[in-house]
């Protein structure tokens, strides 16, 4: 009995020692040289593996940072400038601070502004819906409202507003990783400069139709009239394909365009309220708040087939 135990211990010890030598030799011989700084950089990163930086994940980004000569090309949108400063410190380099960005939804086609012309009852996915047809309103450029952006956001920063049927971005949570930008088949969401004290001015519409067509489909559409471009003193607004675009790098937040826009398509957000206007209901040219909660209840989406044409479709030719 004792002998068996001794033998077992002896054999296992010898075996263990022999294998340890083999492992050591193999490990030494086939050692992969890896820059130790990659590990150090990775420790500083948020670890969300969101892909917002354009790399496959945080580890890949760390490797990219170490190998890349130019620090300007490396930016972790989730971690922002703080993280990049730390990464630069690890690598002993200098990095210029970048302007923080935020996702902006450029559609104000709420149920009230943009009446439904048919009912969609198919699979609730914007990509599927976009592949089938132009959407359940007269606007073929606007938000489809199935929430692909909500599903794409890893940070819980986007939610659908049931009152408007449009996605709303939580600026606190948004890391500007760009996942929603890629998920939106209509390219409505744009990453824009967060702006001084979060104040931003942007055109909340992407409708490229001619003014009359766009206006017919949606009350809040940009009709490409160009008034905003004329009034802008900083040359920040361009009108192309019947749609105005404000270059956030040039915009000085003067808000002249907001007052000028006849459809209220230009939104100014997070500006301090100067004084509450006593008589608001003017000529309908009043600027609208970005996430206006006005509008009727969301229409009942039927469970019928792909796209249901409204029964009362009447020709107006």
């Amino acid at each position: 009995m004792t002998q068996t135990i001794i033998w077992t211990i002896a054999i296992l010890t010898i075996l263990g020692a022999a294998l340890a030598i083999v492992l050591y030799v193999v490990a030494e011989k086939f050692k992969v040289e890896e820059d130790p700084r990659i590990d150090d950089v990775e420790k500083e990163l948020p670890g969300a593996n969101c892909g917002g930086c354009g790399q496959a994940g945080c580890r890949a980004f760390a490797q990219f940072c170490v190998e890349s000569e130019d620090m300007d090309k490396c930016f972790c949108p989730v971690g922002g400038n703080d993280v990049m400063q730390k990464v630069a410190a690890v690598l002993g380099r200098e990095v210029a601070a970048k302007e923080p960005m935020v996702a902006v939804v450029r559609c104000n086609g709420s149920c009230e502004n943009r009446p439904r012309t048919n009912e969609y009852g198919g699979y609730q996915s914007c990509r599927v819906k976009a592949a089938l047809y132009s959407g359940d309103t007269g606007c073929s450029f606007g938000c489809l409202g199935c929430g692909d952006c909500v599903a794409a956001c890893q940070f819980g920063a986007i939610s659908m507003d049931p009152a408007t049927g449009l996605p709303v971005v939580d600026e606190e949570k948004c890391t500007a990783c760009g996942a929603c930008v890629k998920a939106c088949p209509k390219a409505i969401i744009e990453l824009r400069n967060k702006g001084r004290r979060n104040m931003r001015v942007f055109v909340s519409c992407v409708n490229k139709d001619k003014g009359a067509v766009a206006r017919k489909a949606c009350k809040a559409a940009c009709i490409g009239c160009g008034k905003c471009a004329k009034v802008c003193a900083f040359d920040a607004i361009t009108v192309e394909n019947n749609i105005a675009y404000i270059d956030f790098a040039k915009c000085k937040l003067c808000k002249k365009c907001v007052a000028e826009c006849p459809t209220g398509a230009i939104h100014a957000v997070n500006f301090p309220v100067i004084k509450p206007k006593p008589a608001a209901p003017a000529e309908g040219a009043a600027p609208r708040p970005a996430a206006s909660t006005e509008g009727a209840a969301r229409p009942v989406i039927s469970t019928e087939g792909a796209a249901v044409v409204e029964k009362s479709v009447k020709k107006e030719e």
């Binding site: 089938l132 132009s134 469970t303 087939g305 796209a307 044409v309």
Partner: peptide, 30 residues
Amino acid sequence: GKAIANMDATTVKGSSSLLYLTAEQTVRGV
């Protein structure tokens, strides 16, 4: 076939029908 989203659309070479389905026929189950 494709559901028509716009009755102002026009016929093309391959147009083959205008088929009216009732609400019952188009119901998709849960």
